[in-house]
Design a protein around this nucleic acid. Structure first.
Length: 301
DNA sequence: TAAGATAAGAGGGACAT
DNA sequence: ATGTCAGTCTTATCTTA
């Protein structure tokens, strides 16, 4: 059970003073009718109060995020010619406001870089959902894409492909196990195009990618193929040993992990076919066999 | 039916031109 | 920039137990 904080506002649905802030998710909901207030997810950190006399502990705005084209810091000039009390504006005010609006729209969205960014980021959010990735990864992807924009790498390339490869790069950087193949098939971009963009990003932005740890792939494959914990641990032992023998370089980590799991399943009498494990890992049976051969040779199994 | 073997082909990294 | 080369992985097909 997470920490819950009382909230002074009224529930918009039932009108009762029973709003509660969930300390973990930051959602505000009514304890009487269960209504969750949309778009009002605040962070659970202590509120910022600028004056002690302020009874209304309002927030200072949404959190900033790299996944918004303006990082969540936009100010929108209302298109309605009324002041805050609802009275119509004077004509001189109206004309200066319309000037402001013109300037504002030019400086914001009509800037081609910003327009590009806006489109890319909306695609990014869709992709993030499809690949069920965390905010951390998409933030990182947004950061990479911004860099790419700065370096003018987008010219003449498809936004979709570039933002997708940024996302893939973010996965690599955060060691989130997603293969190029998965990304390409889920987002519907040819693998080749994606890998060209990815290599471009790595090269031009000087990204330092951590080497994929095949041990972390084991967990993923094991859960897809529904293997036992025992087998998983045995496979990790095998890979650790192989790592010491230094026979891992240049091999696909997924293939290696799959082979280690297959060998482990033999040791543990965990009945599993090569096909199942190859499918779970997204490699072919032949690859599993070849990797098995390598591993066996060095481990006298 | 699962596992192993073999061959042709694709694509990418390293290195030279 | 383009080409070559060794090594890897995939797909397809056949054999073996």
């Amino acid at each position: 059970m997470s920490q819950q904080l009382q909230n002074k506002e009224k529930c918009p649905r039932c009108g009762k003073n029973d709003l509660i802030t969930d300390g973990e998710s930051g959602e505000i909901f009514c304890s009487k009718c269960g209504f969750v207030i949309p778009e009002k997810i605040s962070d659970a950190s202590p509120e910022r109060i600028f004056s002690d006399s302020n009874p209304n502990k309002s927030r200072t705005g949404d959190r900033t995020s790299l996944t918004r084209h303006d990082q969540g810091l936009s100010t929108i000039i209302s298109p309605i010619n009324k002041d805050s009390t609802g009275k119509p504006l004077s004509s001189s005010m109206k004309s200066s406001l319309s000037q402001l609006r013109k300037l504002d729209s030019r400086s914001n969205i009509n800037n081609s870089t910003d327009r590009n960014l806006k489109q890319a980021l909306s695609e990014l959010l869709k992709m993030k959902e499809k690949l069920s990735l965390s905010d951390t990864v998409s933030e990182k992807a947004a950061y990479i894409y911004r860099k790419a924009l700065e370096r003018k790498l987008v010219r003449g390339r498809s936004i979709t492909a570039l933002i997708a490869s940024s996302l893939y790069a973010a996965c690599r950087e955060t060691e989130t196990p997603r293969t190029l193949k998965e990304v390409s098939s889920i987002i519907n971009i040819p693998k080749k195009e994606l890998s060209v963009c990815y290599r471009l990003l790595v090269k031009e932005l000087d990204l330092r990618m951590p080497i994929i740890d095949s041990v972390s792939c084991i967990a993923k494959i094991a859960s897809v193929a529904k293997l036992s914990e025992k087998t998983k641990r045995c496979a990790m032992k095998i890979l650790k040993k192989a790592e010491e023998e230094r026979i891992l370089s240049g091999k696909e980590p997924m293939g290696l992990a799959a082979a280690a799991l297959y060998l482990a399943s033999l040791v543990m009498w965990d009945k599993i076919t090569q096909k199942t494990i190859a499918d779970a890992a997204g490699v072919t049976e032949v690859t599993v066999r070849n990797r098995c051969k390598n591993l066996k040779k060095f481990m006298d199994l």
